[in-house]
Amino acid sequence: MAPKSRLYWIVCYFILALYGVFTLLPIAYLVVSSFKTQLQIYAGVSSTFWFTPTLESYRFIFETKPILHMLMNTLIVSVGSTVFSLVFGTIAAYALARYRFRGRDDLAFYILSIRMFPPIVAALPIFMIFNNLNLLDSKIGLIIAYTSFNLPFVVWMMTGFIKAVPVQLEEAAMVDGQSQLGAIRDILLPVLRPSILAVAIFCIIFSWNEFLFALILTKSQAKTLPVAIPEFITWTEVGWNYVAAAGMVLVMPVLIFSFLAQRYMVRGMSMGAIKD
């Protein structure tokens, strides 16, 4: 292949830079808005990036709402649903990847199809069921709801990952003297660790960002942060600076987490792409 010309690279980088601006601008806007007063927000384009920063919005949101409590709820629900989804999803994926049984492929597709229908369709039935089971406004209820949405994704991804690991590794362990469960624990799971991490990251981000179910199924005790943010827009004022500050509180942990774990995320996405 001939080396690419200088012009090629200039055009390439120009397009990439444009895309970078396109994706980063909203975040940059969020960051600066969170350090502004309400007045500065409405001051016009010229002062978008030129203003005296203030922590006033952060002080306000922490004083008026139980932000830390809701952040904690978000964390517990995200991690909880991720753990449940991974445990049950990986077990199901193992069966789909390793055993031949009648209707296996149909079952795999059926599981995936759960992911395809709009969550709002399930919202009302889940609300009614949770009402009967006394699960409304409870963290465990939200964990169950998120698990039901994360599970198909975990099953689908993990089936691909497990299929990619030669079954002979487990068989070798069994011949070496290990039980099947022991072979899974000693050999398969350690080999799958990067894949499990990648899937876990996607689950956590889904639950972290989830809005619809959190809105419908929680009221105060189990309320998560995404639901609280729009509440800064009221009949009397539109507090964009508060929305931005609360948004920052929500985004920052997951941003830092994703930055640290990006290696695994790329692996997760590319592995999914070349799966047979």
Binding site: Q168, E171, A172, M174, D176, P190, V191
Partner: peptide, 20 residues
Amino acid sequence: LEPKDRDIAMVFQNYALYPH
């Protein structure tokens, strides 16, 4: 009996060495 109780050893075509 399970493979583990048969007192055998096997060499696989792809060697099946534990990669980790």
